[in-house]
Amino acid sequence: MKAIGLITVFSLGMALFYATIDFPPWADPQSPASLHVSPHYIQETMKETDVSNVVTSVLADYRGFDTMFETSVIFTAGIAVILILRKYSKKEDEKFLPEVSEEAEPDIIIQTVTRIIVPFIQLFALYVIAHGHHSPGGGFQGGVILGASFILLAISFNLKAMLRRISERKDILLGGIGLLIYSGIGALCVLLGANFLNYKVLHLIIPEASQVEARSYGILGVEIGVAIAVMAIMIAIYANLSSDGKYDKGL
């Protein structure tokens, strides 16, 4: 088995090394990848979408359809983890669970610091989401930071403390709503007579917005949807993995 594995790995490595011979040199501004499609994004993003962060405009507009499915990959993972692990009945056998020797003492310093710092983390997350148009950031990053603030609560207190603030039900609901915001904005464009996710028709319903600004608002809208979904699903995955699907005390 080991020998076959080694041979496979080395033949793959050789093939990939062989392919690099034909690659353009690294970081060459004249490489095909830098000349064919990407200049359009860099040159036209301000004119077409009013978003100066090109990664955001490509992510949420030019290739917004990919991003919608990307968000649903996270959603899928969350539901998949729930499907695999969640135990609604309490009579599951626990013969292989490691014995918890004694309860960890709640640490007052950690808990106090967490209490103080969590609001600031969440504020920063909102900034990252909202400022994705002009600086590195956006829905995924902000959503993960938001999720992390809740997970921090769960780690420094226990899972129950987190679930008091965001219950399992609410969490799944938020995950679904986040994705419904994204795909709903896309479907709204269809209802207004344009292609799916073509935000420019949103100028019909957003007051005082030109077609280009409507794209910018559309991007903001989907980023918010992404952030909500990512946050909810991160929490769901953590809660299931840490409590083994039982939603009890957690780690």
Binding site: V54, D66, E70, A77, A80, L85, F140
Partner: peptide, 29 residues
């Protein structure tokens, strides 16, 4: 365009990161 790096691979890799995190979560479960 030569003043700014190519944004497209970054966008694609944001997707790939998300996919790998999701796969990791399911695998751990």
């Amino acid at each position: 365009p030569a003043h700014y790096i190519n944004p497209l691979p970054h966008v694609l890799m944001l997707t790939a990161i998300v996919v790998s995190v999701s796969t990791l979560g399911v695998a751990l479960a």
